[in-house]
């Protein structure tokens, strides 16, 4: 397997302090390898966005990182912990090494500035010595890369359609050639035709430029198609992680199975679907033991008292995947 580019170790994120703190992300271990697309799936409130903000240190108060480390491996030089960077180092690291495309990307552009200004601003901040001319040349090049003609450089965001704005956001994220791009529900606001175009383009760009992607969404069927590996989150923990095809064909965790059978199929035989009974847990009053056990059809005796650890399952194809479920007790815990 390729070398890692970003390793998250035992990351914990709380909202609030002391006794009233809500544990939004708990003991997450995750490794992103160079050049791969890692999908992060889960329902709203499962902590997937908090994880993304936590690892880039973008959490707004009352969010607090209470433990763990995020190790970044630059292309040259030794690895370092992002959580230990000073503010100045962090500013340099963000965008140049890790860029993020936000959920409401359609509204993340400043409405009173031209696209060109917003694109060149990034270059100005990170490379003040760059000349005006080469800055605008680079911005032009970036727009062409994401499929927007250069004559739209001087357009204001409201003059572009939603899909074009989303492309501008992706272009902006890539303009400093980061190693890691985090996409937080990048296409939820777009319709399916546009979604496919933008994702197809992203995959193409990734092959050409060689960055890695963390792709956060609740749409598992989209992830199965577009990512290499998938991690599924529930109640702030990762409950299963495996290659995309493995998850799709043979998910081990009952929650992953439930999620997969929540999507009506467009092709193939029509089957009766049930979804998952109950509703997602409240982070303030998390059930004891496995947080999925109140909704789990297969819950048995240890589930309501002990938390299962994420580890390599005891199945024959257990290599390269991990699951946190008492049905498949871990042979080798991760982390």
């Amino acid at each position: 397997m390729a070398e890692p580019v970003l390793e998250i170790r035992n990351l914990n994120v709380d909202y609030g302090l002391g006794d009233r703190a809500v544990h939004a992300v708990r003991d997450v271990n995750l490794t992103l390898h160079r050049g791969e697309v890692l999908g992060l799936a889960g329902e709203s409130g499962s902590g997937k966005s908090t994880l993304a903000y936590g690892m880039t240190r973008l959490l707004a108060p009352p969010g607090v990182i209470t433990g763990g480390e995020v190790v970044y491996h630059p292309q040259q030089g030794p690895a370092y912990d992002v959580l230990g960077l000073t503010d100045r180092q962090l500013r340099a690291w963000r965008w140049a090494e890790t860029a993020i495309v936000f959920q409401g990307a359609m509204n993340s552009l400043n409405p009173v500035h031209k696209i060109s200004t917003q694109l060149t601003d990034v270059l100005k901040a990170h490379d003040p010595k760059m000349s005006e001319h080469s800055r605008s040349a680079r911005a032009r090049e970036m727009l062409k890369l994401v499929g927007i003609s250069a004559d739209r450089m001087d357009a204001y965001p409201h003059q572009l359609s939603g899909g074009m704005r989303q492309r501008v956001m992706i272009g902006m994220a890539l303009i400093l050639q980061p190693q890691v791009v985090i996409m937080d529900e990048p296409t939820t606001a777009l319709d399916v035709v546009m979604q496919r175009q933008i994702l197809g383009q992203l995959i193409e760009l990734r092959e050409r430029l060689g960055f890695s992607v963390i792709f956060i969404t609740h749409d598992l069927s989209l992830l199965v198609e577009f990512s290499n590996r998938i991690a599924i989150m529930y109640g702030g923990r990762i409950v299963e992680e495996a290659p995309a095809a493995t998850i799709y064909r043979d998910a081990l965790h009952p929650y992953s199975k439930g999620l997969l059978s929540s999507f009506p199929a467009l092709r193939g035989p029509k089957r009766e679907l049930a979804g998952i009974p109950g509703s997602p847990p409240d982070l303030a009053g998390m059930p004891a033991g496995c947080s999925f056990h109140p909704r789990c059809p297969k819950a048995f005796e240890p589930c309501n008292s002990a938390i299962p650890v994420l580890g390599r399952p005891d199945t024959p194809d257990g290599a390269g995947r991990s699951v946190a479920c008492w049905l498949h007790p871990a042979e080798q815990p991760v982390g």
């Binding site: 329902e43 929540s262 679907l273 049930a274 979804g275 997602p280």
Partner: peptide, 8 residues
Amino acid sequence: LDVSIRLG
């Protein structure tokens, strides 16, 4: 709605 409860 959340994906897991849509079908419900």
